[in-house]
Design a protein around this nucleic acid. Sequence first.
DNA 1: TCAAAAGTGTTATCCTTACACCCATGT
DNA 2: ACATGGGTGTAAGGATAACACTTTTGA
Lengths: 332, 332
Amino acid sequence: MSPPDTPFSAPAPDPAVVIGLSAVVVAIAEGEAEVLTVRPPNSDLEGLPFGPFDPGGHRTFELAMRAFVTEQTRFNLGYVEQLYTFGDKGRDAPLADMGAASPASRVLSVGYLALAPAAVDTHAPHTQWRPWSRFFPYEDWRAGRPGALGPIAEALRRWAERGADAPQRMARMRLAFALDGAPWNEERVLERYELLYEAGLAPEAVRDRGEGQALPAPLAAAVGEAMFSDHRRILATAVSRLRGKLKYRPVIFELMPEAFTLSALQRAVEAIAGVALHKQNFRRALERADLVEGLGRMDADTGGRPAELFRFRRELLSARPVSGLSLPLLRD
Amino acid sequence: MSPPDTPFSAPAPDPAVVIGLSAVVVAIAEGEAEVLTVRPPNSDLEGLPFGPFDPGGHRTFELAMRAFVTEQTRFNLGYVEQLYTFGDKGRDAPLADMGAASPASRVLSVGYLALAPAAVDTHAPHTQWRPWSRFFPYEDWRAGRPGALGPIAEALRRWAERGADAPQRMARMRLAFALDGAPWNEERVLERYELLYEAGLAPEAVRDRGEGQALPAPLAAAVGEAMFSDHRRILATAVSRLRGKLKYRPVIFELMPEAFTLSALQRAVEAIAGVALHKQNFRRALERADLVEGLGRMDADTGGRPAELFRFRRELLSARPVSGLSLPLLRD
DNA sequence: TCAAAAGTGTTATCCTTACACCCATGT
DNA sequence: ACATGGGTGTAAGGATAACACTTTTGA
């Protein structure tokens, strides 16, 4: 770059930059958190809906993203927020093998999170809704400590012992995966995925490094299915963000239909956060926050006693600051 | 774009995309929150340190950013995190008038937040540390409701009444600026700035829209000094993020020297959050969280009784999940 | 001796947690 | 009748907010 005394370097002539947009579209179906995937041509892996950003044509990222998600999946997005911009060289990046750019071009990708009130079937080709547990089996603690942690802990320990910085590795591993009595923190999804990647336990790491050796079957099942390009990393970022946001913004209602039962709401929160909640305390917190309002109508299809239907008091958003939900854990 | 049945559009040939990086570098000096600014040549406004990202040369955004901040300001960054990627057409964007790109080129800018343990004088040309109250005078509630809110509330009300959606405008305004009894939320810095911009009350809005009419003096003083390009928007994003993060991550210690008094720590938190805190309750919360450790040494230069020096127990970070500080408000 | 800032003790209140129990429906 | 899920009451413990007060220095 330029000499230190000239504060403004002449900008580098951009050889070829391609901006890719990727969307993590989340919905609840049958009490499970699902994510919209597409299978790119010639890929054996699924990925997120993605597309190039056209600097000439698109006015904003968000408009561009809404347009190509609708185009690819015939699905209209509701709530949308930017996640992160990924630009590291070395990581496999979207569009890289799409013929999108000349071989030497640099690809940046801007990730977005979108929430949908229902996982409606789009009947679009190559498009599926997938439970996100498919990609992160170890993230679901609703029924207690997931079995997937067994093989993961074992493999991570072997990795940690290998390094020169063994103590640090051990500490990171324990914190991220709640080993040796450390508490589980459901928000550290990205940290966990990156640790697996770094330790070479994610199929993507094996792929990106060109080391041919596949993972043993039990471990492969435990770490979850790989995604195209760096899409699983973007998905992990989205899950982290969403789990965190649940607690300080009423985002969960972006995933609910107009009318819902309190149990359905609790199941939705549990599906996103991946933990089981205490029923009474969850309801008390809801009530105190004054977030929902009974409709007087009943839902009889619950299997037991009919449940009252509620709605989110959306008008609150323009009346007072409104925080999210507390997560009163149900300890096993 | 391509027809709906082909899921993957051919990428648009990129006419000319320039990626700009901007850094909000924050430090505490004399109990005030300060931000590092530079004055670009031929500009009468200050801005953030910024530079082009070289897709060919730079391996990651972060490395590129560290390099050009050091180059421009002779300052080495410590803690760094990505904020947001700004890509809207229409908003003035960094490098736009730097001769950086051909007139028709599109500029994206990736904003970063960096925290420094002290506002050391860099003696670099064009570089200054500025209290951020210079850019957001209405954000400082440490001594009670800031006077700047008077002219702002008045002007916003006139704007709100003008619109077709007057009720919505009124509600947004009240929520963002704590009018008519609404509580102040120190995190909504970006929301407040964008509202001012939208209402045409920020000098940048007057500039970007080409409406010649300058703001009346009292209002101009109340809304704060403009910055080059869209840098004040990036700064607002940074302040929002930092104020939020204070509460759930121990980031405040990235802004403190190795040894500090509890009062200095409290003053730092107050400077960032822009609110006054209750001394005893702040200390009790600190103690309960076990975040700091007395050093037995004293600082005699406090003006009154000497204060004990403390240090952040950084080792906790690799031992257990550690949250931020609670903000026990001191109500006037 | 007084101002200035450090540091301590204590109480009332509210929120969270945890436990146990009753209610309405379909099979 | 009983299984299933819906819905309520209440007591214990802990965190927070708010009160006032003592201590140690420099001017």
